[in-house]
Amino acid sequence: MKDVVLWELKRRRTALLWWSIGSVVLAVFIMALFPSISDQAAQLNKVLNTLPPELRGLKTGGAKSVDVGDPVEFLNAQVFYATLPILWIILSVTRGAGILGREEQSHTLELLLARPISRVRLLAAKALAYTGEFAVVCGATLLAIVVCAPLFELHVGSDKLAITTLYTALFSMSFGYIAFALQAASRFTKRSATAVAVAIGFGGYIVASLSSLTDWLKWPVKFMPYHYFVPLDPLQGKSPRGLLVYLVAVFVIGTTIALLGFRHRDID
C-alpha cells in the first residue's frame, strides 16, 4: 500500500509544487491587502453594507453585515469562506475523481489489479495518496497563513488559524472524496463524478450564500454542505459542530459506498 501511495506522490510532485505555490501566493496576497483595507475600513464597510444583500452574502457567507477592519471577519470573508475553498475544491474534485478514474479510463488500473493486491487495499492506497496530495498543498498554505498573518496585522491566534485552515481543508476535500467514492463505487466516469461533486460544492455555495435572504431556500439549504461551513466559528474559538457532523458523514458514507461498490464491480 505504501508503494502505491509513494508512486502517486512521486508522479504528481511537479503538479503538487505548483498547486502549493499557487495556494500560498493567493492566501498571502489576500492577507497582504489587510493593512491598507483596515485603514479605510469605515468607508469600505459603508460601501459594502449598502450593496444588495444577495451580492454581499456571496462574499460573507450570508452574513447581513460585515466589518472588514476586523481581522477575524476579514479572514473569514476574504480567505476562508470563499477564496481558499474554491481553489481547494477545484484541486480536490480533480484529484478525487482522477486518482482512480484516470487509471481506469486509461486502462492502467489493470496493470495494478493484475498484481496480488486486493481491491480494498488498492482503494485505501488511492484514498491515502489523495489525502497525502491534498495535505501537501494545504499544509504549505497553513504554514504560510500562520507565519504571515502577524506580518500583515492579522492578529489572530495561531491555533485558531491552524484549526480554521484544517477545517477549510477537510471541507474542501470532502467534495473530492464524494467524487472519489462515486467513481470507485460505480461506473461513473471521471467527468460525471466531477460534475456531481462540483454541483454539490458550488451549487451549495450559491444556495448557502443566498439562503439567509430568501425564505424558500431555508429548507433546501440544509442539504447543502456549505450551509454547515462557517469559518467564523473556529476563528472565534467555537466548535463547528454542524461541519464536523457533515465531515464524518461524508467520509464514513463515502468510504462505505466506495468499498462495497469497488469490491465487486466490473473494471472498464
Binding site: S106, T108, E110, L111, R115, I117, S118
Partner: peptide
Amino acid sequence: TVEVKKHVGYLSGEIALWPK
C-alpha cells in the same frame, strides 16, 4: 483472486502503460 495473482503474469490485448 489475490492468491491467484501471485502466480500470474498478464499482458493485456490493448497494452496500456503510464506514459510519463
